[in-house]
Write a protein that binds this DNA or RNA. Structure first.
Length: 416
DNA sequence: ACAGAACCGATCTCTCGC
DNA sequence: TCAAGCGAGAGATCGGTT
């Protein structure tokens, strides 16, 4: 990493060279995760420029690329077509979410062996609080090195680990050390590592916020730290300004959650292979999305009060519409009904061809907290729907026949 | 009575991150 | 020319109440 030249490096594969006693928060990040899972089961891909990328219909993006591909400029979230242009001959592998989910479980199991305080951020990264593991497993630096070793030898994958006394700096450390690296930043070294970095290193600073800060003449974290707090909050809002100022001084009191916080929304969205304005096409997709969303809610044992839809038009402008119901639901039929009403109203007021459609269920509460529906005045006219859907869920779980589900729903979908 | 302020929930957009 | 599919949270706006 170029910004570290000239300063004594805290990087170390030898933890004893660093004062790691306070580096009790580790951030473990798998290297090129999806791509490496593919390489693991198809060894002929090793060392080859390769990417896991979506949709061969020209509308997909890169999900993960090997480092051999990255040297050509290939990056995640880049259009697949652009990646091919940058790296002719690159091997393109379609995504296999099942395989990545399974690999993720393997990795998380390794973490769980070390500490119960594991907070997954996504399929391929997690924070670990190893303060309590010290007695049994040794100092944080040793634990970090051990994790990396186990992931390599037992799982055939590589991971980068960052360690610090705060989440933010631990995550920063891993980003500086990747790929296949380890970086511990003790509290005494935080500011010298942090302040020379570009603004974008601050959690929550994306392109827009960076541009705003640049308009004030700021370009590094250190300059943000030196900034007057009221000037920051004036520019970015109270919450964002205060948070950035704290982070710029390396202060971050978020604890590692022992389990992921409950989700507050569940949704599904999809981009059409071909843009469409056909109500039948849109309606059919909306049904699929509503059912997928509600089914996942039922699986998770949650219900939501707000149904929202998302529509992206061919020119990429995006709008959302939502309704809040008196009672939380997890019924496919109810979600579809609300979503359909929203879409009809939106379509009635114009709009061109649709590129993407999404359905989301928000304001989630645990199913057990929901007082049984259909008390007096409840507006669901068909109390049998939910029971029917649960029966279908069970049948699908047992027989795996996804084909039976849509038919059961489509049959009566125009009723409400 | 009424105008206005203060508040509140719902809705929607924007921004961000993986 | 391109631009997924999730998810979270902040803030603006609007309508309805006190």
């Amino acid at each position: 990493m170029s910004h570290q030249t000239g300063t004594p490096r805290q990087v170390s594969e030898d933890p004893s060279a660093v004062d790691d006693a306070d580096c009790t928060i580790l951030h473990v990040d798998m290297d090129a995760f999806f791509a490496m899972v593919e390489v693991r089961r198809r060894p002929e891909l090793r060392g080859v420029p390769m990417m896991v990328a979506g949709a061969g219909d020209g509308r997909g993006v890169v999900l993960s690329a090997t480092y051999e591909a990255r040297v050509s400029g290939v990056r995640s979230a880049m259009p697949t077509s652009a990646a091919v242009r940058l790296c002719p001959g690159i091997v393109v592998v379609p995504p296999d979410q099942h395989a990545y989910a399974e690999a993720s479980r393997e990795v998380m199991q390794v973490f769980a062996d070390v500490t119960p305080f594991v907070e997954p951020l996504s399929v391929d990264e997690a924070f670990l609080d190893v303060a309590g593991a010290r007695r049994r497993y040794g100092r944080p630096g040793f634990i970090a090195a051990t994790l990396r070793e186990r992931i390599k030898t037992e799982l055939g994958l590589t991971a980068t680990v960052g360690g610090a006394s705060t989440k933010f700096v631990a995550k920063l450390a891993s980003s500086l050390a990747k790929p296949d690296g380890l970086l511990l930043v003790p509290p005494s070294r935080v500011l010298e590592v942090l302040h020379p970095l570009p603004l974008r290193a601050l959690w929550g600073v994306g392109p827009k916020t960076a541009a705003r800060l640049a308009s004030m003449g700021l370009s590094t974290v250190g300059e943000v730290a030196a900034m007057d707090l009221s000037a920051l909050t004036g520019l970015l809002g109270k919450a964002t300004g205060a948070r950035l100022h704290e982070l710029a001084w390396g202060r971050d009191d978020r604890r590692v959650a022992d389990s992921a916080a409950a989700e507050s929304s569940i949704g599904a969205e999809t981009t059409f292979a071909v843009d469409s304005a056909d109500p039948k096409v849109l309606g059919r997709e909306l049904l699929e999305l509503a059912d997928k969303t509600a089914r996942r809610a039922r699986m998770s044992g949650v219900r939501g009060r707000t149904v929202s839809i998302k529509v992206r038009y061919e020119d990429f402008t995006t709008v959302t519409r939502s309704v809040t119901m008196p009672t939380p639901t997890d019924s496919s039929h109810a979600v579809y009904g609300r979503a359909h009403e929203l879409l009809s109203k939106l379509r009635a007021s114009g709009g061109g061809r649709v590129r993407l459609l999404g359905v989301r269920l928000e304001g989630l509460v645990a199913g057990t907290e929901v007082v049984e529906q259909l008390e007096l005045g409840a507006q669901d006219p068909q109390p049998g729907w939910r029971e029917a859907e649960i029966a279908v869920d069970r049948a699908v779980a047992r027989f795996g026949a996804s084909a039976i589900r849509p038919a059961a729903l489509v049959e009566r979908r125009e009723r409400s």
